[in-house]
């Protein structure tokens, strides 16, 4: 009896310690360093002194940084909506494909993750630049139907940034939606059809309400990393495409102002926590609504 408790305890500690250490070393400690920098001031070129001042946050509320933040939220929002519009039918398609196809399609979704983001972004540049594959294809087609051809300028604007972000983040939308569709009791659909529901009603009153949690998860998984994206606007963006992460990078590098960069980073962290809190509240409300209906 005692022995059993002992081995339980051992298993408990073995499973408890690694993730705790992980969280401590790679999340809590770095985050508290950045957090304390954000209340500090610069002393000369290298030194940073923790003096518990709010100046960095006051500066972060300046119109330049606020407008950049709002723009970033807009870009991330549009990215999320487009990912949902493409991801929803794709996930539904995969979930209802024959089992043999299912795994092939899933691998096709996951496979790009094996290639580094930087390389995939450069591949996009090779495809969409003025003398890139996309324009070559158009030129070939224009020649075919004898229309004069002027190459399109596809890179270095906001559309290119959103396209790049959608390309990178689409799997984060598809996978939770797919999981939602998989766990779905398909007999519900048959029952609804038997009772005379139209295809549209099937979608709006059965499918979407049931997989709402998956939709919210997918949206959060796309929105949060898109909000903090740095590489895509840096490489695909034009003179107007600066996002908040690019401003933060400049504070740590060119401007050599780590305290201010930390304050801007913390603003993003607070936003992320805010979104997660919102999700928690939404879920609670959803369940409450259901319970009310049952009553």
């Amino acid at each position: 009896m005692m022995k059993q408790v002992g081995s339980h305890r051992l298993i408990f500690w073995l499973t408890f310690i690694p993730p705790t250490l992980w969280l401590l070393i790679f999340l809590l400690i770095p985050l508290s360093i950045i957090g304390s920098f954000s209340f500090s001031e610069k002393r000369g070129l290298i030194d940073i002194e923790l003096s518990w001042i709010l100046n960095n946050y006051i500066r972060a509320a300046d119109l330049i940084y606020l407008s950049t933040l709002i723009k970033s939220i807009g870009v991330a929002g549009i990215t999320t909506v487009i990912c949902f519009l493409f991801g929803f039918p794709l996930a539904l398609g995969i979930a209802s494909a024959p089992p043999r196809w299912k795994s092939i399609l899933l691998i096709a979704i996951i496979l790009p993750f094996c290639v580094n983001l930087l390389i995939r972004t450069y591949a996009l540049i090779a495809v969409f630049r003025t003398r890139g594959f996309f324009n070559f294809g158009l030129e070939w087609f224009a020649d075919l139907i004898n229309v004069p051809f002027e190459p399109l300028s596809l890179l270095y604007n906001d559309t290119a940034v959103i396209l790049g972000l959608v390309y990178v983040h689409l799997p984060f939308m598809i996978l939770p939606l797919y999981a939602g569709f998989e766990g779905f009791n398909k007999t519900l659909l048959e029952a609804a059809l038997d009772l005379g529901a139209s295809k549209l009603e099937l979608l709006t009153s059965i499918i979407i309400p049931i997989i709402t949690p998956s939709i919210i998860s997918g949206c959060i998984l796309v929105f949060i990393p898109a909000l903090g994206s740095y590489l895509t606007p840096e490489l695909l963006g034009g003179p107007n495409s600066q996002m908040i992460a690019n401003v933060i990078e400049r504070q740590f590098m060119n401007a050599n102002d780590w305290p201010f960069g930390s304050a801007l980073s913390m603003v993003l962290v607070y936003l992320t926590f805010g979104i997660l809190a919102l999700r928690y509240l939404c879920f609670n409300n959803l369940y409450l609504d259901k319970n009310k209906r049952r009553l």
Binding site: I64, S67, N240, Q242, V247, R250, Q251, N254, N256, D257
Partner: peptide, 14 residues
């Protein structure tokens, strides 16, 4: 001055 430059540059970009 580095800060002035950076702020001017941020305004140009946004």
């Amino acid at each position: 001055v580095v800060r002035l430059y950076d702020e001017a540059w941020s305004r140009v970009l946004s």
